[in-house]
Write a protein that binds this DNA or RNA. Structure first.
Lengths: 341, 341
DNA sequence: AGGCGTTGAGTTACCGGTAACGTAGGATTA
DNA sequence: TAATCCTACGTTACCGGTAACTCAACGCCT
């Protein structure tokens, strides 16, 4: 029955117990486990045998505490898991982090800065190795917390020339501007926009602003813009198009917050027998997976979401290990002209 | 310059400093911060004023260490962020957890049990409040770790009548079986399947097994099954259909691992002018967002992914707070007959 | 033989909180 | 008035590791 107890009781086995069982001091056992050197092979074998036999699992909390170090956690905040672009970014981040023995602590901020602030405070109290935040807007208190915590930090998504610490992203305004200019060059004059922005300071709004500016500069008319209170998915694209067209039937081309919404629009047009691009032009953003199976190439802006995540994690890891990291990284974007305009 | 230092230096402000500044003992300051009572209002005000002035941020690591307690972290393992169904589950989990002051530690296992084992060991060493694992298959060492750690645990996704601790999910075999029976009732005799299974023990394979069993029981013929080495998305559905039909043109109906793959198939058929359901029947699984914008109702299995996550988190939270929790929760599924078969 | 460096340990103190216990002084009660 | 209780604190010890230091034994050199 003794063997059974060893593995099933409340796992109270700590270094002292292992050391005692192996007939050495706690310190020696510690050295063996950290492969620090300064012990004989015989001792190493004895200690490791006891570690195995007792099922010893180190208490990393104690280690962090002892050395006043950080954990291996990296806090990653994203606005929303329902939005496909962010899950791609998150995947890029996590893949890179795990390969360097770090763990992602998720923070869904629901597009609310107050939520983000609360989350930042909580995560910082757990001594994370670093932080990755989506977006460049934060509450004043959050900024102060981040600065005084002095933890490696990457702000992603929207490019920020003066980040708190580091930044990885792209210029959303420019991507919207380029799309606007391109559509103007196609001869459109009456423009529409459908998105789901929740607050004024986010990247989608920057894209809309760039789009509007291009239209203004080019003498066109942004006759209708819609910001739904929803996640930017297929169905909001579908009913958003319906709403927009019913309130302004003269719109010639619509720029959507992302490809999923644009695909929703494509399906709406198919259902209503509205020809694309004959009757109306459709443009998306982000080049999401669904675009790969459409019968025609969607006009969109290609962005390497995974790359943003990877680059953010890479820079963070550099900083964590004390190396020099790039303060601002622009991953860029590429306009895909497509066949839907 | 003194004020500046307070907020910008390495945040070495701890309870002792706060206490000293407030002219009380560390213990009194601790009591105030935890609102434990046993202090005067005057003292409370003094301490809180210093907390504010010095920008004190509690070291939760120390608290956990002192009390030999757990952190507020909950480890959540999912196979893959690229698979939309899991992001829905994850969203359900995280939403519930944050509302109870817990944080999600993400673990992407990439469908590999060895990855999961490593991750479990790491996360356990950080004293998590609980664990949620996707899938019922684990390595023997992982099971042993979980048992001896004695941490609240929910295995989700695939229903398991004898979970390690708790389980929330649905019977995937049955959902596949029901789909098979339904398709048989529609008069089909030659069946196909396209999925992306990575290992033998996962839920998608259970669905396939149920599907195959139903076909066998009903006297049909599962003439072709395809398991691509890819994520179950739109494009794999597209080219998987192409592959399957080119190797066996007599297949009358195809059951896909999920709706996204099925939609990929729909697009393939449209491109090839193959009529649905005239020339071929298409069935999906999971009722994903894209299905909402199709011109016809997709034949599929409706599953409340968000609910699985929520329920898992709820049960976990009950157990964490010492209450009684349901060991096995079946969230069920519903066959959506649709118009694509 | 004496001095010295190396190897393989053990000892002590400490990280930042909190549980448990101790205690002074005022209020309440017998 | 003395015994008792309560309030509002302070003191001590400890959680499980690790940094920094100490030290004995042994081999090697001059």
């Amino acid at each position: 029955m003794t063997e059974f107890k060893i593995s099933s009781k409340n796992n109270k086995i700590n270094l002292s117990e292992v050391a005692k069982a192996a007939g050495v001091s706690k310190m020696t056992a510690s050295r063996v486990l950290r492969e620090e050197g300064g012990y004989s092979e015989k001792t190493r074998v004895k200690v490791m045998a006891e570690v195995e036999r007792l099922g010893y699992l180190p208490n990393r909390i104690a280690t962090v505490f002892a050395g006043d170090k950080s954990t291996t956690f990296v806090g990653v905040s994203i606005p929303d898991l329902g939005n496909e672009v962010f899950t791609h970014v998150l995947e890029g981040i996590d893949r890179k982090l795990v390969s360097f023995n770090h763990q992602t602590v998720l923070g869904m901020t629901q597009h609310a800065l107050a939520e983000e602030e609360t989350w930042i405070e909580t995560v910082l109290s757990w001594k994370p190795a670093g932080l990755i935040l989506t977006g460049r807007a934060h509450t004043p208190k959050a900024v102060q917390l981040l600065q005084s915590a002095n933890v490696p930090l990457v702000e992603i998504w929207d490019l920020n020339s003066s980040p708190i610490d580091m930044c990885v992203g792209l210029n959303h305004f420019d991507s919207g501007y380029d799309m606007g200019r391109f559509l103007l060059s196609k001869g459109y004059t009456r423009f529409g926009y459908v998105g789901t922005s929740h607050d004024a300071a986010n990247a989608a709004t920057s894209r809309l602003n760039g789009y509007a500016k291009a239209i203004e500069d080019g003498g066109g008319r942004l006759s209708k813009q819609l910001c739904l209170n929803d996640i930017p998915g297929f169905y909001p694209g579908f009913y958003g198009t319906e709403q927009l067209l019913s309130s302004d039937p003269n719109v010639e081309v619509i720029f959507f917050q992302n490809d999923n919404m644009a695909v929703g629009a494509v399906h709406f047009c198919q259902a209503q027998h509205i020809s694309i691009p004959g009757d109306i032009g459709i443009a998306g953003w982000g080049e999401l997976p669904i675009a790969s199976v459409l019968p025609y190439r969607l006009t969109t802006v290609q962005v390497n979401h995974l790359r943003i995540g990877q680059l953010a994690a890479e820079n963070l890891l550099l900083k964590i290990s004390g190396d020099q990291a790039t303060p601002v990284s622009d991953v860029g974007f590429r306009l895909v002209t497509g066949e839907t305009v």
